[in-house]
């Protein structure tokens, strides 16, 4: 079943034409990844889906309902929840308050969701009353993902979850993404670390200067010569 569909989406930052006709879909239960180099439009695509940026042209549908032009808080209420690039936790709020904010659309945090977050990220439980701004980068990433999970996402948008993390931590985070997906959450993952992203994804799209240049099964993309050269660092 198609959960999310983008059709010929064009988006601009001022006069800069950032997305030049993006079309993609995400099926229920999948992990789909968007890979590409810096400035290719990966984050912009997620921002446009979330309603932080409104497309000038094209449609975005969630389970058949058009969501383009909707303000961000309404998109979140529909179950499309983003963990943004650079984590963006609320620095002067405690870990618990950050998680409460994640559950904002449901009023109060669901204890079952809190349990789930603490099982996935035991570290957060130890730091509940600490201000988020004082956490390490890895802990902030865990908090950003935990916060998004508190919203009970149907579709989780993850923007660069590996950014700035140590290789071991990257492994952990990607393991957790797989687990979140196995628990029934559909995931759209934006990553610079193409190898890691493709290794856990079902399908992938390759973005270049605001356009999709390649779309295939993740395993096939990993074998694709152009992908290997440009994004997996092979000669």
């Amino acid at each position: 079943m198609t959960m999310l569909q983008l059709q010929d989406v064009h988006a601009y930052y001022g006069h800069i034409h950032a997305l030049k006709g993006i079309s993609l879909d995400v099926q229920q239960g999948e992990i789909v990844t968007l890979i590409g180099s810096n400035g290719a439009g990966k984050s912009t695509t997620l921002r446009t889906i979330s309603g932080l940026l409104h497309p000038r042209q094209g449609t975005i549908t969630l389970n058949g309902q058009a969501i383009n032009g909707m303000p961000a808080h309404k998109v979140t209420a529909l179950g499309v929840v983003q963990s943004p690039e650079g984590r963006r936790v609320f620095p002067r709020m405690t870990v618990l308050e950050n998680l409460e904010m994640g559950a904002f659309v449901h009023g109060k945090p669901d204890p079952a969701d809190l349990d789930r977050v603490f099982t996935l990220f035991p570290r957060l439980k130890e730091r509940l009353s600490q201000k988020a701004g004082t956490l390490s980068g890895g802990e902030q990433q865990m908090l950003a993902m935990g916060r998004a999970l508190m919203a009970k996402p149907k579709l989780l948008l993850l923007d660069e979850p590996s950014m700035g993390l140590s290789p071991i931590l990257v492994e952990t985070i990607f393991g957790i993404i797989k687990e979140i997906n196995a628990q029934g959450t559909t995931v759209l993952l934006v990553e610079q670390n193409a190898l890691m992203a493709l290794s856990i994804a079902h399908r992938g799209y390759v973005l270049q200067t605001g356009q999709i240049v390649l779309a295939d099964e993740a395993q096939a993309l990993m074998r694709n010569e152009m992908v290997r050269k440009a994004y997996l660092g092979e000669e």
């Binding site: 808080h73 620095p91 409460e100």
Partner: peptide
């Protein structure tokens, strides 16, 4: 809840919107 939403908005407006505020 509303007071916390206000503080969240003050600290990071976009992130607050992404939380459904």
């Amino acid at each position: 809840r509303l007071g916390k939403a206000m503080r969240a908005t003050a600290q990071d407006r976009e992130a607050a919107a992404l939380m459904g505020i």
